[in-house]
């Protein structure tokens, strides 16, 4: 895992900065990393925490998968049709720039209270960047790949499956990293505003109680999970990009 070094260094610097903030600026009103860590250990020994993790994790996995699946489909559609791009891309970009939380009441009306609303909110965050990154990747594909597929008499579906998608795979993994983070964000925000379970709800509950230790402990848990997952995906993306790169290195 050659990419672990820089994120680990950044993590250590972050913890140091957090400690400085705790000692010098926030006058003890922000827990130290040690206190947050201890609180996290305590939380992790309770069944309630893992029930919240399971609740958030389920919604997140579904939201992330849907974001990636529909994002890729929309992105491919936009990438292959100039008309579709001209019609829909401005709408998607505008939607992406909106603070999605203002639409949450509509999501609740449509999906009701429960996992579906959180999943929908997660998809609303993750889908658009996935679609736009896929579209850009398709638009940037070397035309000679498509011409080659044409010469080999591949039909549209075979071209998509065997040429287009493999050609844009590194960019897709890059898009998945973004969709991963934003879907998690969407699910957590959804839980903060209308849920009775999940890590977002637990954090909101702790905010109401002024329990800074718990808030930071949950933040530490989520941050660690996200960083590790992102590092793994980045590693996959880099190895794919390495294979795809056309830098000339003479073979022996």
């Amino acid at each position: 895992m050659r990419n672990l070094g820089p994120p680990l260094i950044f993590l250590v610097l972050l913890l140091l900065g957090w400690d400085v903030l705790h000692l010098q600026i926030a006058n003890g009103s922000i827990s130290s990393p040690r206190e947050a860590g201890a609180r996290l250990v305590a939380l992790m020994s309770g069944a309630r925490f893992w029930a919240d993790v399971g609740e958030t994790g389920f919604a997140f996995v579904i939201a992330c998968l849907l974001s990636i699946m529909f994002g890729v489909l929309i992105g491919v559609g936009l990438g292959l049709s100039r008309l579709a791009t001209e019609a829909f891309e401005p709408i998607l970009v505008t939607f992406y720039s909106l603070p999605k939380v203002i639409l949450y009441p509509l999501v609740l009306l449509a999906f009701g209270l429960g996992a579906s609303a959180k999943i929908a909110f997660g998809v609303m965050h993750g889908l658009v960047p996935m679609a736009l990154l896929t579209r850009n990747a398709i638009a940037e594909i070397k035309p000679v790949y498509l011409r080659s597929a044409n010469v080999m008499q591949l039909d549209g579906f075979a071209t998509l499956r065997l040429v287009l998608l493999p050609a844009v795979l590194p960019e897709l993994v890059g898009g998945m990293r973004i969709a991963f983070s934003l879907s998690l964000l969407g699910v957590l925000i959804g839980e903060m505003f209308a849920a009775k379970r999940g890590l977002g709800f637990a954090a909101m509950n702790a905010m109401g109680l002024g329990d800074i230790n718990t808030i930071l402990a949950i933040g530490l848990f989520l941050g660690t999970f996200s960083v590790l997952a992102n590092v793994m995906m980045l590693s996959v993306e880099r190895s794919l990009r390495h294979v795809h790169s056309n830098s000339v290195t003479q073979a022996a």
Partner: peptide, 18 residues
């Protein structure tokens, strides 16, 4: 369309890097 029996080599590098 491209007839059977015709092969094309393009100027650009058309190898599939994956």
């Amino acid at each position: 369309g491209v007839p059977d029996g015709v092969g094309v080599v393009f100027q650009e590098d058309a190898t599939f890097p994956w």
